[in-house]
Design a protein around this nucleic acid. Structure first.
Lengths: 224, 224
DNA sequence: TAGATTGTTAATCGATTAACAATC
DNA sequence: TAGATTGTTAATCGATTAACAATC
């Protein structure tokens, strides 16, 4: 399947950094669309994120030729093509494993639904939680994982269990066919090469933020 | 102040990527310490994250010389020095602005406390929430921001308000002296250069995961 | 000693930016 | 036409990896 409109055999997988930025461009395009605009430029697409116009063009060029010299990009068209490239032109069922504080917050998170990600099953080991219904979905025991994944044809999982259970649960998920894991547990997961993991580690992010602020704060007495 | 033990005037700021990885090494060091080990190697430090030994040594070399040829690194010593470099050898008071689902989950998140990040004040605009106490902290109105930040000498903020309020609240926080923002709202923030922002955008992360999985799924019928 | 492992230099690789002919 | 903006090539920049003398 050739995802580009013109040219480009599109053989090599896109670099991770490119995909991340294309997601941002899509956000900006949708924002411009809501503002009622119909066309845009590489400058306008990258500007809110501090990305240079040449970078935007290079990133898009990876997937095909979508603009017109002297004119720019047609917003509606580019939204459709980028959604298709990123795979968000269809629904993605998700499972949520581990219904702690974070799990419950994710369950109500608006950002997922608006991007066609839907939590279709919840799993936990706590007998008090099993059988309860949250946001219209009933919590099932971990043993029901295989059946649940098959029923919903799910490839993606949100892993929100405690650190010491994370690898064990991940192994289980992979064994029953999960291909992508958004890992909220603060431990590195060992997974086979066909499985993708993205780690969401808030304390690492906060640590990096503290480092940056520390540098600019050095020798400066607190006052602002 | 020279953060390294020996050599290195330590002038240039560390590349962002280096700092991120050093955080990971610190995690691994703490894990090895809990296992009762006393020394380690560049190989062992990077292995769980798929980082090569040469990369680990290069990253550490940025801050100084901490190992001994033929021996490796002393775990306890390296933990102390990396904590100091990253700035997590001291307490960091945080403010939390926006007490929605995510805000409440962050309030109970264990990963922050264990890294000496403490939420010392909570702000929201909802009159029903103001005055309520969560985890020992009373919710205050946004007008109390300046006073609260001064009282706690806070530089860091968790921004958990809805997208359409994010920029306005960020401007307010910056005006009263906040220097670092962990932004959970799915919008880019425009901030002056002396302020650092790290965006935590779960739907972007999930989108990137879907892209990776889509590639490996292409043409493969669902079955596992 | 032989084996392990460092810090650092050199070589490789990839990513970003600038420049520009082509196009509207 | 003049001005704007593309896609792409070339130049720059930075980051990763390999190699190795020095050290324990």
């Amino acid at each position: 399947m050739d995802l580009s409109r013109n040219g480009h055999p599109n053989t090599k997988p896109a670099p991770k950094a490119v995909v991340g930025r294309v997601s941002l461009y899509l956000r900006q395009l949708e924002s411009l669309q809501r503002q009622g605009l119909t066309k845009t430029s590489s400058h306008q697409l990258g500007e809110p994120f501090g990305i240079k116009n040449a970078q935007v063009r290079k990133d898009l060029a990876f997937f095909g030729q979508f603009g017109r010299p002297g004119i720019g990009y047609h917003i509606n068209d580019l939204i459709l093509v980028l959604r298709r490239i990123l795979g968000v032109d269809k629904d993605w069922p998700l499972i949520l494993v581990g219904l702690g504080n974070l799990g419950r917050a994710l369950l109500r998170y608006r950002g997922f639904q608006s991007r066609r990600f839907h939590i279709v099953a919840i799993f936990d080991t706590d007998p008090k939680k099993i059988g309860q219904t949250y946001q219209g979905v009933t919590v099932e025991p971990l043993d029901a994982l295989r059946k649940g994944i098959a029923a919903h044809k799910t490839s993606l999982a949100l892993l929100c269990v405690p650190a010491d259970a994370a690898q064990r649960v991940a192994d289980l998920m992979i064994a029953v066919g999960i291909r992508g894991i958004l890992n909220f547990a603060p431990v590195p997961l060992a997974v086979p090469p066909q499985v993708s993991v993205i780690a969401v580690d808030l304390s690492i992010q906060l640590e990096n933020l503290a480092y940056k602020v520390q540098g600019s704060l050095d020798g400066v007495s607190w006052a602002g």
